[in-house]
Design a binder for these strands. Structure first.
Length: 398
DNA sequence: TCTGGGGTCCTAGGACCC
DNA sequence: TCTGGGGTCCTAGGACCC
């Protein structure tokens, strides 16, 4: 690491987000174990987590672990509203905000010391403001890299604040279990555990080549870098979506569906996703159907069109063809979930904006201005051209 | 005890082209 | 006719994240 590296990256993560919103809106739930979602646990309050209840656990198992838990149905629109309100606080706090999901984001506060105080000062204020303006608890991790800031917030949860001082990163990181590394799930963790590797420090002691033979080339390179806190990614605004999809669980009770029944579901899915596609001003070229079967195995069938489209009928015709071809498999194995994903997304161009600018310093502000005006998805390409820099920006329709 | 809906990225084989 | 190398695109599956 560079000696001059400063811990200016904040990772802000709402605590037990859905459950916290429920406790905020219903005072009877405060201080009580709360589970959001019936079939599976979408979120559990920290009172419920104390009993071992975890996200994605089956509802039946969660109720056995914590019989006193109050189970509430999810209210997605309330969470969406709360998320927007929190993001407004983020935007008021830092110039660079990169959303990761409905309940977490990176903020870069470099260069703000003179006007806003130290990163820790800013984080303290951020937590206070989220509590005051939205009424929710939030944890913030601060470090020199995105990855480490995320680790710091995970360690500091719930309702915490943790700064990893520059120079102490590896001492902080190496005792942690490998599962803390971004990209290590159950499968990778078990591969490593089989070789006696349980801590981040042990991963750091391995060569990248050896790691690659255990878990694959890309994953090996990725983990090797993270174990040494090498993560050069900057906090960037407006990450472009690469695919969008929707799905519907059909339940396990009646896995034998006729083509007509599935077609009905498919039409509803296609209608919904095609509307979302057009609302985003995007076009797709690849249509993928996803299936889950009675034995919980999965399959996908996809087709790439010769031309990009956002037309419902075109998407439906393609999806129907894929479904027809998959029927023998579906009839054999029994279907419990049907989904559709649109991939190879491209922008729908409405024109071209040409700008002349003074390259390095102006680039960020120009990109920001364009995003503000046309939305975060509007820029597909920004090119600096030699000695006479210009910017070529396809625009969305107004 | 089989579980939701939304995503990202990687791998590997085959087709096809030069 | 056989063998070789390199590259892109498509399809399918899988791991992982929130």
């Amino acid at each position: 690491m560079f000696a001059s590296a400063k811990a200016t990256i904040l990772h802000a993560d709402l605590d037990a987000f859905f459950a916290s919103v429920e406790q905020r809106d219903d005072r009877r739930l405060r201080g009580r174990p709360v589970i959001v979602g019936g079939g599976v646990v979408l979120a559990a309050s920290y009172e419920a987590k104390a009993y071992g209840v975890k996200t994605a656990m089956s509802g039946a198992r969660a109720r056995r672990l914590c019989p006193d838990a109050i189970v509430v149905a999810p209210r997605m629109s309330a969470y969406s509203e709360a998320s927007k309100a929190v993001y407004r606080v983020f935007e008021d706090t830092a110039p660079f905000v990169e959303g990761l999901s409905i309940d977490e984001a990176f903020l870069d506060v470099r260069g703000m010391r003179r006007i806003a105080g130290s990163p820790r000062d800013i984080a303290v204020r951020l937590r206070t403001e989220v509590r005051r303006r939205v009424g929710l608890p939030i944890t913030v991790g601060i470090a020199t890299t995105k990855f480490l800031a995320k680790v710091a917030s995970a360690v500091a949860k719930p309702n915490g604040l943790l700064l990893v001082p520059p120079g102490t990163e590896l001492a902080f990181l190496h005792p942690l279990p490998v599962e803390r590394l971004w990209g290590v799930g159950p499968v990778t963790a078990s591969k490593l555990r089989d070789r006696g590797i349980t801590t981040v420090g042990q991963v750091a002691d391995l060569s990248e080549e050896l790691l690659a033979t255990m878990i694959g080339r890309a994953a090996g390179r990725h983990l090797h870098a993270l174990a040494h806190n090498r993560d050069p990614r900057r906090v960037t605004r407006g990450v472009r979506r690469r695919s969008m999809g929707t799905q519907r669980a059909l339940g396990f009770r009646r896995p034998n569906r006729t083509f007509a029944e599935l077609e009905e579901t498919l039409i509803a899915l296609v209608d919904r996703i095609a509307r979302r596609l057009r609302a985003a001003g995007r076009l797709c070229r690849t249509i993928t159907l996803r299936f889950r079967f009675a034995d919980s195995s999965r399959a996908t069938r996809s087709q790439t069109l010769p031309a990009k489209t956002a037309d419902t009928r075109t998407i439906l015709a393609t999806a129907r063809g894929l479904l027809t071809a998959a029927m023998p498999m579906i009839e054999r194995d029994g279907i419990t979930l049907l989904g559709i994903t649109l991939g190879n997304l491209e922008n729908e161009f409405a024109g071209q904006l040409e700008l002349q600018l003074n390259p390095q310093r102006a680039l960020d502000s120009v990109l920001d201005a364009v995003r503000d005006r046309y939305g975060s998805d509007s820029i597909t390409r920004a090119v600096l051209l030699g000695r006479d820099p210009g910017l070529s920006i396809p625009l969305l329709p107004d």
